[in-house]
Design a protein around this nucleic acid. Structure first.
Lengths: 240, 240
DNA sequence: GTTCATTTGTCCGTATGTATT
DNA sequence: AAATACATACGGACAAATGAA
């Protein structure tokens, strides 16, 4: 039995391959929908679906009445894709690692409890880590997870796998489907400065993230303090 | 002749209205696609298109085999929507204004010229502004626009309208359709500190933005230095 | 455990409208 | 004016997931 990949994805991948190989060149028109139907032996509906996805990805641009071209501008990473910290680091060409992993179960500070929507006295898991890139400390990461959403045993995988989201997906079967990041510039406290090998008062990027599952329930609140001089956070947005 | 709004948008707006009015409640199932067909007197294709758009907006969540619910979690702003600085400020409940508008035409610094893709000696328009919120200076904004992309006369509207993107759209008929932001934490220089009423060395958020039109050509490169203590930058992402 | 109705996912063929050349 | 290409819309068919009988 074969694993059936939807036709529209097959067409999408086919087009992506042709673009990667240079068969379809940047700025040039791709075959019309009619021609693509013949080429891939699918209906127009299916062709349009594949093209639509590539337009959303910023790979293709449709010019009504004329045709569809391979978008001349290629944003550095796929638009609006949700990315874990690990992925973000790799984009910068840095090899990410984590040290000083510590998992605790306790009542978090009140502002965190409010964000997690915890009842009075309710506890949460706190995951502490210091992330490094090419060996140098680059960020201090604290994640808070509601105890009712995840088992502590499920978090054991963190010792071998750096990505919290991967562990949640593979060991807890929890898929993070949406995030909301708030980004600020703050001064490094003395403790943070020591950990990150910078001077006290130096600028840090503070990213606070709320992560949600597909059904909309909160799965994680995290705070990441990042060295301002070693890291750039990139976001691509697209108007529909 | 009537201005024809596509049926799928009519359905989308109909559903949005029902959600806003509370006819469809958060967390509850909306009518099945079959029922929506009957309700709006359209085909299933059209119903599905409308629902798909609302899912992308984070308003609805589809549970396969069961139905579609009104998403319990409402992210603070529409996911992946591209927003101008003016819009972003209003979200924070602040009244934005701009002072010290200055437009110059000249050869920009080399790193900027490279980003704009300028040929040797080619010039660009530089738009300087200091943005305020509720009267207090909050950011220093410098925009660079290629001279071949926009007329200087078109930028005259900036004196009455704060939003560069609105002026580009209304006076130059240029629509910004995608942006790529890079965010860093930096130390305020002495000049920046003076302008923003902070201390030299205090943390600032530096947002560098590349803005593109629909056909993929670069229309703007901008640098925004923002007071770290007065501003939070929020981004919502969604995995497809 | 199996069957069955319901609901969403994929796919097709066709028809008509609108924009561009 | 005509041809081409994308946009919208319909109706039907079967597959896959879910939950209940």
């Amino acid at each position: 039995m074969e694993l059936s990949v939807p036709r529209y994805l097959q067409v999408k991948h086919g087009l992506e391959r042709q673009i990667a190989q240079g068969t379809l060149r940047t700025g040039a028109f791709i075959p019309s929908e009619h021609e693509l139907q013949a080429q891939f032996k699918v209906s127009r509906t299916t062709v349009r679906r594949a093209v639509e996805l590539l337009v959303d990805d910023g790979v293709l641009t449709i010019i009504r009445g004329r045709g569809t071209i391979v978008a001349p501008t290629r944003l550095t990473h796929k638009v609006t894709d949700l990315m874990s910290f690990t992925e973000l680091m790799r984009r910068q060409g840095l090899e990410p690692a984590a040290i000083g992993l510590r998992v605790e179960r306790r009542r978090p500070a009140e502002d965190v409890a409010v964000r997690l929507g915890l009842g009075p006295g309710e506890e949460a898991y706190e995951v502490f880590r210091v992330r490094t890139a090419d060996g140098a400390p680059i960020s201090i990461n604290v994640s808070f997870l509601p105890t009712h959403a995840v088992e502590v045993t499920g978090l054991a995988g963190l010792s071998r796998e750096q990505s919290l989201y991967k562990v949640l997906a593979e060991d807890c079967f929890i898929e993070v489907s949406a995030t909301e990041d708030t980004i600020q510039a703050v001064k490094a406290t003395r403790a943070q400065a020591a950990t990150l090998s910078v001077r006290s008062g130096d600028p840090l990027l503070l990213i606070e993230r709320m992560a949600y599952t597909r059904d909309g329930s909160l799965i994680e609140f995290s705070r990441i303090h990042i060295r301002g001089d070693r890291y750039k956070h990139t976001i691509a947005l697209r108007r529909r």
